[in-house]
Deep mutational scan, measured.
Amino acid sequence: GSPLAQQIKNIHSFIHQAKAAGRMDEVRTLQENLHQLMHEYFQQ
């Protein structure tokens, strides 16, 4: 897949890990990143 698709997959797993660790501030930051990446992805 594209590097962007790979990045989106990575962030999904980072979010999963951050949630499991209870780091909600990190989850929020990652979700904002994910949102931006998704936006770029669909602009392609």
Rank of each mutant, 00 (worst) to 15 (best):
Gly1Asp: 12
Gly1Asn: 12
Ser2Gly: 10
Ser2Pro: 09
Ser2Ala: 10
Ser2Trp: 10
Pro3Ser: 14
Pro3Gln: 13
Pro3Ile: 12
Pro3Lys: 13
Leu4Phe: 05
Leu4Arg: 03
Leu4Cys: 07
Leu4Tyr: 04
Leu4Asp: 02
Leu4Gln: 02
Ala5Gly: 06
Ala5Val: 12
Ala5Met: 13
Ala5Gln: 09
Ala5Pro: 05
Gln6Tyr: 05
Gln6Leu: 10
Gln6Ala: 07
Gln6Asn: 06
Gln6Pro: 02
Gln6Gly: 04
Gln6Arg: 07
Gln6Trp: 07
Gln7Gly: 02
Gln7Trp: 14
Gln7Asn: 03
Ile8Cys: 06
Ile8Phe: 03
Ile8Ser: 00
Ile8Met: 04
Ile8Leu: 05
Lys9Gln: 08
Lys9Tyr: 08
Lys9Asp: 04
Lys9Ala: 11
Lys9Ile: 09
Lys9Met: 10
Lys9Pro: 00
Asn10Pro: 01
Asn10Cys: 15
Asn10Tyr: 09
Asn10Thr: 11
Ile11Gly: 00
Ile11Gln: 02
Ile11Asp: 00
Ile11Lys: 01
Ile11Met: 10
Ile11Cys: 09
Ile11Pro: 00
His12Asn: 07
His12Arg: 15
His12Cys: 12
His12Asp: 02
His12Gly: 03
His12Pro: 00
Ser13Val: 12
Ser13Ala: 14
Ser13Glu: 13
Ser13Gly: 09
Ser13His: 12
Ser13Trp: 14
Ser13Leu: 13
Phe14Gly: 05
Phe14Gln: 15
Phe14Met: 15
Phe14Asp: 06
Phe14Ile: 06
Ile15Leu: 07
Ile15Trp: 02
Ile15Asp: 00
His16Asp: 08
His16Tyr: 11
His16Ala: 14
His16Asn: 11
His16Ser: 12
His16Leu: 14
Gln17Pro: 00
Gln17Leu: 10
Gln17Asp: 06
Gln17Phe: 06
Ala18His: 02
Ala18Met: 07
Ala18Arg: 02
Lys19Glu: 08
Lys19Arg: 13
Lys19Thr: 07
Lys19Ala: 09
Lys19Asp: 02
Ala20Gln: 10
Ala20Ile: 11
Ala20Pro: 01
Ala20Ser: 07
Ala21Phe: 04
Ala21Tyr: 03
Ala21Val: 04
Ala21Ser: 05
Ala21Arg: 06
Ala21Gly: 04
Gly22Asp: 03
Gly22Trp: 06
Gly22Asn: 06
Gly22His: 04
Gly22Phe: 04
Gly22Cys: 07
Gly22Tyr: 03
Arg23His: 06
Arg23Ser: 04
Met24Arg: 04
Asp25Ser: 06
Asp25Arg: 06
Asp25Trp: 09
Asp25Phe: 06
Asp25Gln: 07
Asp25Gly: 05
Glu26Gln: 08
Glu26Met: 10
Glu26Arg: 07
Glu26Thr: 06
Glu26Tyr: 07
Glu26His: 05
Val27Glu: 01
Val27Ile: 05
Val27Asp: 01
Val27Phe: 04
Arg28Tyr: 08
Arg28Ser: 04
Arg28Met: 07
Arg28Thr: 05
Thr29Lys: 14
Thr29Leu: 12
Thr29Gly: 05
Thr29Ser: 10
Thr29Pro: 02
Thr29Ala: 13
Thr29Cys: 14
Leu30Asp: 00
Leu30Gln: 02
Gln31Trp: 13
Gln31Arg: 13
Gln31Asn: 05
Gln31Glu: 10
Gln31Gly: 04
Gln31Ala: 07
Glu32Ser: 08
Glu32Asn: 09
Glu32Pro: 01
Glu32Trp: 13
Glu32Arg: 14
Glu32Cys: 14
Asn33Arg: 15
Asn33Ala: 15
Asn33Lys: 15
Asn33Trp: 15
Leu34Asn: 00
Leu34Ser: 00
Leu34Tyr: 03
His35Arg: 15
His35Ala: 13
His35Trp: 14
His35Asn: 09
His35Ile: 12
Gln36Ser: 08
Gln36Phe: 08
Gln36Cys: 07
Gln36Arg: 13
Leu37Asp: 00
Leu37Met: 05
Leu37Ala: 02
Leu37Thr: 01
Leu37Arg: 02
Leu37Gly: 00
Met38Arg: 03
Met38Gln: 04
Met38Cys: 12
Met38Trp: 10
Met38Lys: 02
Met38Thr: 03
Met38Tyr: 12
His39Leu: 14
His39Gly: 04
His39Pro: 01
His39Phe: 10
Glu40Ala: 11
Glu40His: 07
Glu40Leu: 14
Glu40Met: 13
Glu40Trp: 14
Glu40Ile: 12
Tyr41Asn: 03
Tyr41Met: 06
Tyr41Phe: 10
Tyr41Gly: 02
Tyr41Ala: 04
Phe42Asp: 05
Phe42Leu: 09
Phe42Asn: 07
Phe42Ser: 07
Phe42Met: 11
Gln43Gly: 11
Gln43Leu: 12
Gln43Val: 08
Gln44Pro: 05
Gln44Arg: 11
